[in-house]
Amino acid sequence: PQGPKMPQLVTEFLLCDPDELQLQTKISARLQQEQTSWRKHGNTSTFRLLCLMADQTLLSIVEWARTSIFFRQLKVSDQMKLLYSCWSELLILDIISRQVLYGKEGSLLLVTGEEVHFSNIPFHAGPTLYSLIQRGLKLVEKLHILKVDRQEFACVKFLILFNPDVKDLEEHQFVERVHEQAKGALLEYTLCNLGHFTHLLLCLSELRSLSTLAEDYLCCRNLSGEMPCNNLLIEMLHAKSA
């Protein structure tokens, strides 16, 4: 529903969204550069590549938040608290929303624009990863049925980022207000279709549970020394367990 029905705030949220094609080009270039150097040292693996992709996506999420309306008004200390609490949700949402908006059935669309057919994902990947993929697919399907669009995903990202339950925020009231405003904009955008709105919010609790599972999975791989070090992904994982 473009045009007069679009709430002003939804338009503002959409303007903050990075351009998908630019992101694709940037991350692909970075991955290629890294792979070339890995090949020289003979230590390339699919898992390392996925970690790098996740790390680069995380960087783009931080950049999105940093330059976004409302968030840029916060002090860095509050910005950090909010991001530490929701980085994995935003990361999973990024992957899921890409499937819902642009993906094809039976394959996983990566941030680089490449498609990986599910038959190429190894069954021996382990029970946690297997469960993550299965539950992720179910969530994609639910959001697909709900026909969630770019506008709604843009609102949802702000709902997640401005979490008033985060402890020790200096500007707690401001965060709470933005959260309520984002919720209001989403409800207005869904044309006060409460059923749709409620289903969408239910999907968010599934997203949160998925992100916890994803963090556990990454922590395990990290403990067994499989994660590349010195990147944002690792820093976020450490901050959570600290």
């Binding site: 960087l59 931080v62 910005q79 820093e235």
Partner: peptide, 18 residues
């Protein structure tokens, strides 16, 4: 613990005007 937060702080503190 502070040192662990270095990268995120750096990214958020970045000054675009420079």
């Amino acid at each position: 613990k502070k040192k662990d937060n270095a990268l995120l702080r750096y990214l958020l503190d970045k000054d675009d005007t420079v």
